[in-house]
């Protein structure tokens, strides 16, 4: 797969950065001329993944969040969200609908929505070291990139 363009951002896990993160990714993928629905889906994915870092990876501290986006041939977009926080003990459990360790302020639907809005979702985690979420979305090809 040929990489056409990429970007990388790092920011602290302040909740005010959720909006910044999804807006930055929406801006970056605008070069693919996505539909409004596609932009909405991508913003949702970024918001879910970044919120997971803020709520679960760094529950009692502010830590680093790394966000990488790559654009490949045929309008394939890969979004990687990485943290260096607590890690997930049981990934299968975390991905179950309605499961949350975040109390009643969280719905437990984050991973369900991420699975529904992506073509592929991979989660790698090491307790005590951090978590990497990799999401791939294929956008419609309305225009061809030069």
């Amino acid at each position: 797969m040929k990489e056409i363009n990429k970007m990388k951002l790092e920011f602290p896990s302040n909740s005010v950065n959720e909006r910044f993160a999804r807006s930055a990714v929406a801006g970056f993928i605008s070069q693919l001329d996505p539909t409004l629905e596609e932009v909405g889906d991508i913003k949702t994915l970024v918001s879910e993944a970044v919120t997971n870092c803020i709520v679960h990876a760094y529950p009692n501290e502010i830590g680093r969040i790394l966000l990488k986006v790559s654009i490949y041939e045929k309008n394939l977009v890969e979004i990687i969200v990485r943290d260096y926080g607590k890690g997930i003990e049981d990934i299968e459990k975390a991905r179950e609908p309605m499961f949350t360790t975040g109390g009643d302020e969280r719905s437990g639907m984050g991973f369900t929505i991420m699975e529904s809005f992506t073509d592929s979702l991979k989660v790698k985690s090491t307790p005590g070291k951090g978590t990497t979420v990799s999401m791939k979305v294929k956008l419609s090809q309305r225009v061809r990139l030069r």
Binding site: T51, E105, R106, S107, M109, I113
Partner: peptide
């Protein structure tokens, strides 16, 4: 104009 799963938690609660 935008909502993620946090909105679901509010509505359910």
């Amino acid at each position: 104009s935008f909502m993620d799963s946090s909105g679901i938690a509010i509505v359910l609660k």
